[in-house]
Every structure is written in structure tokens, then in C-alpha cells.
Amino acid sequence: MKIAVFMGGTSTEREVSLKTGSAVLKSLMRQGYDAYGVDLTSKNLVKSFIENEYDIAFLSLHGGCGEDGRVQGLLDLLGKKYTGSKAAPSAIAMDKIITKKIAGGIGIRIPKTYINKEDIDKFPIVIKPSKEGSSTGLYICKNMEDAEVALEKLSDRSVIIEEYIKGVELTAGVLNGEALGVLKVIPHDGTYDYESKYTEGKTDYEYPAKVSEKVYKNAMRNAKLIHDELKLSGASRSDFILSDDKIYFLEVNTCPGMTETSLLPKLASLKNYTFDDVVKGLLSQSDTK
């Protein structure tokens, strides 16, 4: 069985994807698999999937054109097995606006969302791209002037505008249908932005999260509800804000990072799974498609 680890890509999360792919490739080789890496760029984005020889595509891609269903759809057309969620669930989960509507529809608490700036009735608010991850392009706006600046900077992208809820960020993981646990994110500067996520020493992580049993169970339950409702496969990681003992769903990641600072491996360790166990688990899930 030959495994191609596809990484890189053309999204704003390219560098993170390369780190994920490198770590996954090292794990596969350490476990004795016949694996190699493929660095996707704008020049080889399609032909790499067609011209390379492999039995399974291990997708280590983050963000658009990698996590949004397009690559998955291409692999379906090629009749290739791959890790992670199928095309339609990937596309739905990538859109924060649609995902939050689904979450709200099944009883999960979500922040108030505004259609446009004219609807904003209270500050502060959060403005961010609706189809990107890793907290790229995230703006916390204290007034309309801030909001207009943020919208101008994000004018080339679809955005989501929602109320800012001051609280603690929690994340809960699911692997092959099993809820893993809950982790508390404690950024040193108060905001869990791109730099805090991917710079060693910028953020502390508490796992299992020291929260009430009720909150812990609700976060686990909601993460699995989202995973199941969207018909996700492999791994997913749902992010929440805890405020006044209530948790608010923010988004779900269908291809969570697997770098040295990533959260999914930390969550998996709560079930005594090693990094290699997670990689092997994702690989075994690809055979069920």
C-alpha cells in the first residue's frame, strides 16, 4: 500500500499545512508505511493527484482548496481513497455561516450573527473570513469605525459578523466517532490569533480543561453532535467560548492541524492515544469510504 501525503496548497494556511504534512509523513515512515510527501502549489494542484502513484491520499491540507471539498471531489472522481471527510461535508463545514445555522438548528448555543454592518446593534463584535481557519483575518471591533476598517481589509473575502463573547476558549476533538476530551486555550496576550496558535510559548493549554463537569460533558456532546450531524469522517475539532457557565459553538475543523503545537494530538492523549495512533486511526478510516 503506497500512501501520498498531500500538503502545502494555495490557501493562507499553506505553511501550517507543510508542518502538518511533514509530521504525518515522519509518523507514517516511523510506523513502516510506504509513504512519500507531495508539496502542492498553484502549478501542480490538480495534476499531482492525477499523475502520482498512490493507493491512499493522506490529506494534510488546511483552508480553502484543500479542506473545502474541492480536492475531495477530485479524488472521488479519480476513484481514490483519502483520509478525512467526504466532499459535501467538507464544503459545508468550511462555511462558518452555514455550519452555525445547522448547529443552532440542533439546539447548540451559538453567538448572535449579523447579516451586514447595518444590523449590528451592540459592540464589540468579531469579523472574520467565513471560509478560512487558523484565525487568519480575525478582527475584534469595538465600534463601527473598527468594523468598517475590518470589512475593507476583508473586502475580497466572504465574512461572518458575530457578537464578541468574552470568555474562555475551549476545544473538543472527535476521532472516528469517539469524543476525545476538552482542552482549554490560554493565550498569553488574551487573543488566540494566528501568532498565538503557531508560536511556541505564546499560549498555554490545559487538558483536560478544568471546568465544571456539566460544561465538560456539554462540550464533548456538542462536538460529537456537530461531527455526526455534518456526517464528518476521521478527525474533527470543534471550538467553543465558555462564558458564564454557558458554551457557544464557534466553528468545526475537518482537517485539524497535526503540528508540534496542534490541539488534536493533545486531545487524543486524553484517551492515551499517541501521535502515531492518531495517524494510524485516520489512515484506517480512509478504508471505510
Rank of each mutant, 00 (worst) to 15 (best):
S158G: 15
V159E: 05
I161Q: 06
I161R: 07
I161P: 01
E162T: 04
E162I: 04
E163L: 08
Y164D: 08
Y164K: 13
Y164L: 10
Y164A: 05
Y164I: 10
Y164Q: 06
Y164M: 09
I165T: 03
I165N: 06
I165M: 10
K166P: 11
G167Q: 00
V168T: 15
V168E: 12
V168W: 02
E169P: 03
E169L: 07
T171P: 01
T171W: 03
T171I: 12
T171L: 05
A172Q: 01
G173F: 00
G173M: 04
V174S: 01
V174R: 00
L175W: 00
N176G: 12
N176E: 10
G177T: 09
E178I: 14
E178R: 13
L180G: 00
L180S: 01
L180M: 05
G181F: 02
G181W: 02
G181A: 05
L183K: 05
L183T: 09
L183D: 02
L183M: 14
K184G: 06
K184D: 02
K184V: 02
V185C: 07
V185W: 01
I186N: 09
I186Q: 10
P187G: 04
P187S: 11
H188A: 14
H188Y: 14
G190K: 13
Y192P: 02
Y192C: 06
Y192G: 11
D193R: 09
D193M: 03
D193G: 11
Y194T: 06
Y194V: 10
Y194Q: 04
Y194L: 12
E195N: 14
E195M: 13
E195G: 12
S196M: 13
K197V: 06
G201T: 12
